[in-house]
């Protein structure tokens, strides 16, 4: 730990502080001859949609490397601060690092500036990280495709954003999904929103959780890189809600109950 004697001019910018301390985002690798080597992130399914009280964010637990299943307990929905969740698809090392930087960035800003960062500021912060990462992404080493969900307690409004590889953000009014299993469930989400019992945004918390579990189970049936729930081993998808009270991850027992009831018809 080092005592800094010069005046602080970073105005709550944690990434700048990190760089001053010698931290560098992954260095660009020069001279690679591999062309068009980046691929759209594969090997996961994460989703988010608006419901009555806020946003639900869910993800499967499988991590793969090529055709190999490496891990079945991966947490792909990550809390960033009390009102922000990030769901990740892509290269885990880069995605987890981004989540860590963002988490410290938001908390550092809130504590140093004595106010929370605006929702727009948070959305922009992830854009900046993705832009910094373009060099790695085009070389196929660090592509990340995140879903970013926030709740603004002052406006009582929830937001879902997804990003392209260059850092452009797109606000989602209803639902989104990313990862290799996402194409399988995007149609279902749209169908549910348009012609289901009621629009997604009007569904209760219980209905939203049931749908999220069913969607992930469906994705796992068709996509080998998306992990199914394994009740015999107490492995279930990750489910988290983001509401006026902040984020809340469902505990294993609660998820097990919802899984059990969700697998029945009706």
């Amino acid at each position: 730990m080092k005592f800094q004697s010069e005046p602080n001019t970073s105005a709550g910018e944690f990434f700048e502080l990190l760089e001053k301390s010698g931290y560098r985002w992954h260095a660009k690798i020069e001279g690679t001859e591999k062309e068009n080597s980046f691929t759209v992130p594969q090997g996961t399914t994460v989703l988010a949609f608006h419901f009555q009280d806020g946003v639900i964010v869910a993800g499967d637990r499988r991590a793969t490397a090529g055709n190999s299943i490496m891990y079945e307990m991966c947490d792909k929905v990550i809390p960033i601060d009390n009102y922000t969740l990030m769901a990740i698809a892509g290269v885990p090392a880069t995605a987890f690092e981004m989540a860590r930087v963002l988490s410290h960035n938001f908390e550092y800003y809130r504590r140093s500036q004595l106010q929370s960062m605006s929702v727009e500021g948070k959305i922009r912060a992830l854009s900046k990280l993705l832009k910094e990462n373009v060099g790695m992404a085009v070389q196929g080493l660090g592509v990340v495709s995140p879903i970013f969900a926030t709740y603004d307690p002052t406006k009582k409004k929830s937001n879902i954003h997804f990003y392209d590889m260059l850092g452009a953000d797109f606000q989602i009014r209803t639902h989104t999904a990313t990862g290799s299993g996402s194409q399988i469930i995007r149609g279902i989400l749209e169908h549910e929103d348009l012609w289901g019992e009621k629009p997604l945004a009007e569904r209760t918390s219980e209905q939203a959780k049931t749908l999220a579990i069913r969607l992930l189970q469906t994705a796992a049936l068709f996509d080998s890189a998306t992990g199914q729930a394994r009740p015999e081993d107490d492995i279930y998808p990750t489910l988290a809600t983001l509401t006026e009270e902040g984020y809340r991850f469902l505990g294993d027992d609660e998820t097990a109950e919802i899984y059990k009831s969700s697998m029945k018809r009706g």
Partner: peptide
Amino acid sequence: EKLRMNLLDMAHLEGFN
């Protein structure tokens, strides 16, 4: 304020690293 910022910087860098 100066010392508060120093404490914040030290704490957050340590927590991150």
